[in-house]
Design a protein around this nucleic acid. Structure first.
Lengths: 134, 134
DNA sequence: GTATATGCAAACAATTTGCACGCCT
DNA sequence: AGGCGTGCAAATTGTTTGCATATAC
């Protein structure tokens, strides 16, 4: 399929790249309206799908709602159960040595490993945050 | 809150324990109707929530839809992208040594680590499965 | 007896989609 | 010109909830 480089798509991508809060579709939509006032939420969703297919963004989902991330290199996520923020966890913070030999021996072909952590973030443990973010 | 031991709850729990396919709420509902023909889907959802609160079952979610698991000991999941089956991955199959010192030093309090894998399961790689399961 | 649980149906929230029109290439 | 992309609104899907009644304790 031949893809066009529309203004909507460019702006949506820029918005995601411009933040590290791992925004929801709705948050992106609200931001996008500042640039294209009559953009529609459907367009946001369609472009989020396209950007994923192109490998430019990743979808993070907690079951309720998807969030999006323009960081596509290997990293993991930490979600604070108090403020709902999502933190990027770099590999050098988390040394993982997963011995996958057993699994491949049994016939599993592993495409992707997701590691998600949940707990309380530094800000919330210090009592800096009062309520839910984002 | 004082909990009652209703037939509905008992049956829902037994159904989840009786299978390893990690059923959806709807699948559980269909099974439950065999025992309680006029049980409602709302009751299934309410009891799934209660059973989780009691720590008897776990919720696995892929973002679209939740699945439930009566295995509550530490283990992880592998989802086949061809047949949608979910496999339990035992710790002894996957040796993980996550060095969390860095994270705790930075103030993160980690409650839970989820590891989910995606790929192609043994059956599908062998071409045994034809289509989506469940 | 009383509060919790149920069945039913309506409400919800996030996401998807059909359609006619618009605009990249 | 042709077809992909858009805006709009309606539809879909999974899940939750309000209410009157039933039931466990």
């Amino acid at each position: 399929m031949q893809r066009r480089n529309t203004n909507q798509r460019k702006i949506i991508y820029e918005i995601i790249k411009s933040t590290d809060i791992h925004p929801t579709a709705d948050w992106i939509y609200e931001k996008a309206k500042m640039y294209i006032p009559n953009i529609s939420l459907g367009t946001v969703y369609r472009n989020l799908k396209v950007l994923q297919e192109e490998g430019l963004i990743l979808e993070i989902t907690d079951g309720r709602q998807s969030r999006f991330d323009a960081r596509t290199d290997r990293h993991y996520h930490f979600k604070c159960i108090k403020c709902d923020s999502i933190y990027d966890i770099d590999l050098d913070m988390l040394h993982i040595s997963a011995d996958l030999k057993h699994l491949t021996k049994k016939g599993f072909k592993i495409n992707q490993i997701n590691i998600d952590m949940e707990g309380i973030c530094p800000k919330c443990s210090k009592g800096v945050n009062l309520e839910k973010n984002n």
